[in-house]
Computed example of a mutant assay.
Amino acid sequence: MKLVILTGPHAVGKMTVGQALERRTGLRLFHNHESLEPLLHIFPDRPDIWGPLSDQFRWRVFDAFSQTDAAGLIFTYMWAFDAPEDRAYIERVRALFEGRGAPVYLVELAADRAVRLVRNRSENRLLHKPSKRDLRQSEALFCQLEGAHRLNSLPGEIDWPHYLRLDNTALSPEEAADRICGAFAL
C-alpha cells in the first residue's frame, strides 16, 4: 500500500498526470473533483455545506482504502501553502496512511500560467469536471485563487522524505508519470 499525493495550482495537470500514473502503476486515482462535483451540483452556492461534506467523504474513502490490500492510491489536491488548515489536512491524511505502514509520496506539479490557462479548457478536464465547463466562471476562479493563495511551495518548505517538485510545463502527462515513477521507483 502506498499513497501518492499530486498537488499544484489550478489546471496544472494533477488529474491528467494522475490518470497517466494510474495507467502506468495500477494505483487507483481519486481526484479531488470526484468528491466535489455531485455536491457542487446540489449546493452550488454553499461552500459551507459542500466543503465539509467533501472532506468527510474523502476521509471515509482514505480510511477504508488504507485498510485494503490494494497497491495504493493517487490523490489530487490543490494545496494553498499559505493556509495552515491545508497543511494540517494533508498531514492528517499522511499520518493515516503512514500509521498503517504505507509510504506517502508528495508530487508538487508546477507549470507556467499561460500553459495552465490553456489546460483549463482541455477536453479531458471538461469531461471529468462538469463545474469547469462554464469557462468564464472557471477562469475567474482560476484568477481569484491565484490572487488569494500561494499554490506552489517555497524552496525548502516541504521536508518530506518522499517529495518531488516537477515542472510539467513542457511535459506530456505520460512523461510526467515516467519521471514520478523513476523518482520513487513506483
Rank of each mutant, 00 (worst) to 15 (best):
L53T: 04
E174F: 09
L145W: 07
K14M: 07
I5L: 15
Q137R: 14
H31A: 14
E98Q: 14
A140D: 05
F81G: 02
Y77L: 08
V17D: 02
E37H: 13
R116Q: 11
E123N: 07
A111W: 00
F30S: 11
F142R: 14
L117C: 06
A70H: 07
T7I: 04
I49M: 08
K2L: 04
M1F: 04
H33G: 14
F142A: 15
E146N: 05
G182I: 07
A88F: 00
V4P: 02
H33P: 06
G13I: 05
D159L: 15
H149D: 01
I49D: 00
R113T: 06
C143I: 11
H41L: 06
Q67E: 09
E91K: 03
E22G: 09
H162W: 08
L117P: 00
R60K: 13
R125G: 02
L141N: 13
R28P: 01
F62Q: 11
A71L: 12
A110V: 06
R23A: 13
L135F: 00
P47D: 09
A64T: 15
S35D: 03
L6M: 12
S131L: 04
S153R: 04
R24L: 10
F142C: 12
N168P: 01
L117Q: 13
E37A: 15
Q144V: 07
A111P: 01
G13D: 05
M78G: 13
D178A: 15
D69F: 04
L151W: 03
E108Y: 03
L151E: 01
N152G: 10
L40K: 14
V17S: 13
R125L: 11
R165T: 02
R116E: 00
Q56S: 08
T7W: 01
H41G: 03
A95Y: 03
L3K: 03
V107N: 02
L53A: 11
D82P: 01
L126R: 15
V107R: 03
R60V: 08
E123A: 13
S172V: 05
H10C: 12
V12D: 01
T16Y: 12
A102I: 00
Q144R: 14
D55Q: 13
S172H: 06
H128K: 12
A148E: 01
R150T: 01
C181H: 08
S35Y: 04
A95I: 08
S131D: 08
A64G: 15
W160F: 15
R116H: 02
L21P: 01
A110E: 07
F65W: 10
E175G: 10
D82G: 12
H128E: 03
E174N: 13
P130Q: 11
G26I: 02
L141C: 12
G99N: 05
S54E: 14
L151A: 02
L154M: 12
R24Q: 07
E123L: 10
H149S: 10
H41K: 09
A71G: 12
A20T: 06
V104F: 01
F62A: 14
F30T: 05
F57T: 13
D159G: 15
G26Q: 01
W160R: 14
G13M: 11
D134G: 05
Q19C: 09
Y89D: 07
R46E: 03
